[in-house]
Simulated scan of single mutants.
Amino acid sequence: MKILVTGASGFIGGRFARFALEQGLAVRVNGRRPEGVEHLVKRGAEFVQGDLSDPGLALRLCHDVEAVVHCAGAVGVWGKYEYFHQANVQVTENLVEACLKQRVRRLLHLSSPSIYFDGKPHVGIREDQVPKRFSDHYGATKYLAEQKVFAAEEFGLEVLVYRPRFVTGAGDTSIFPRLIAMQRKGRLKIIGNGLNKVDFTSVQNLNDALFSGLLAAGPALGQAYNISNGQPVPLWDVVNYVLRKLGEPQVTRHVPYGLAYTAALLNESVCRLLPGRPEPSLYRLAVAVMAKDFSLDISRARQSLDYDPKVNIWSALDEFCAWWGAQQP
């Protein structure tokens, strides 16, 4: 099988492209940073550079491939709607059109459980529990991109959508690097009582779920899938585990949720008034994410994809810590 992996210079796309190569698949990759895919090219991947907002490039990328694993997109909280729409919706539309024109059989689309975020705690949230309004442009555009993907079914494209939660492991440049940086600056505090439980996902488990999606058939197609390790853990225990493994000071200071939320609101308000609208150092959404319970119901993935998260969170964290330690001077 020959596949295309977009966003391969990033963490999730890069790790899956490498996994697919190890499974014997022919892999074409696209990414923003050529240096980010050098390790894949050395393993036999074909690299095609370019901007996915160009429909012509999308068409060339999809030539002669059987499946596309779409991991590219904009991530974040701050920024204009147009930016997120272009990176998450328009790019996905280009790929969908290219898949149809080039007769690609299947499209696996990486979405996000951010579509569920509404500032409230959620335990075991299901795929159909999408809020009527979205908390930010990222969640709104990721959900709209999903709808573009599902709409292609009527034209014969086989599609699956994935919503993985807090993916970590070797190569994670998002979750823990940010927390480590905040702790080193003395800005990281436990928000609320520190007992909130959340889901994480080992990148190895996500790789297994994506690979299963390449082979799935029948009722498994045309579905959105929550992906996690299936065992919510206390968020601040996880954070302190990583800090301890890396020899960093533990997070012990607490701040009341209401106080943190108000500080984030003021921070956002000031940044909106400043020239250039600089990114705030604290968001209301981030405060809620760090203080509220949040876990996914993954029974659909278990049943339809035979998803079995074998790598536990502590092994994934050890993998991240070993990798992170090797990167430091």
Rank of each mutant, 00 (worst) to 15 (best):
I3A: 02
L4C: 07
S9R: 08
R15C: 05
F16A: 02
R18K: 13
A20E: 12
E22T: 06
L25Y: 12
R28A: 06
G31T: 09
G36N: 11
H39I: 06
V48C: 06
Q49P: 01
D51K: 11
L57D: 05
R60P: 02
H63G: 07
E66R: 12
A67I: 09
A67F: 09
G73W: 12
K80Q: 14
Y81S: 10
A87S: 15
A87W: 15
Q90V: 12
N94P: 09
V96K: 15
C99H: 15
C99P: 15
Q102M: 15
L108F: 10
Y116T: 02
G119N: 06
P121Q: 09
P121M: 10
D136Y: 11
G139R: 04
E146H: 07
V149R: 01
F150C: 08
G171K: 00
R178Q: 09
R178F: 10
L179S: 05
R184T: 04
R187K: 10
L188F: 08
I190A: 04
G192Q: 07
G194H: 07
S202T: 06
N207W: 03
D208H: 05
A209I: 05
F211I: 00
S212E: 13
L214N: 04
L215H: 01
Q223F: 11
N229F: 14
N229D: 10
K245D: 12
P249D: 15
H254G: 10
H254P: 14
A264K: 08
L265G: 08
L266Q: 03
N267F: 06
N267Y: 07
V270Y: 08
L273Y: 02
L273F: 06
L274D: 05
R277K: 12
P280S: 08
L282H: 03
L282K: 00
L285V: 12
L296A: 06
S299P: 08
W314H: 04
L317K: 00
E319W: 01
C321H: 07
W324F: 09
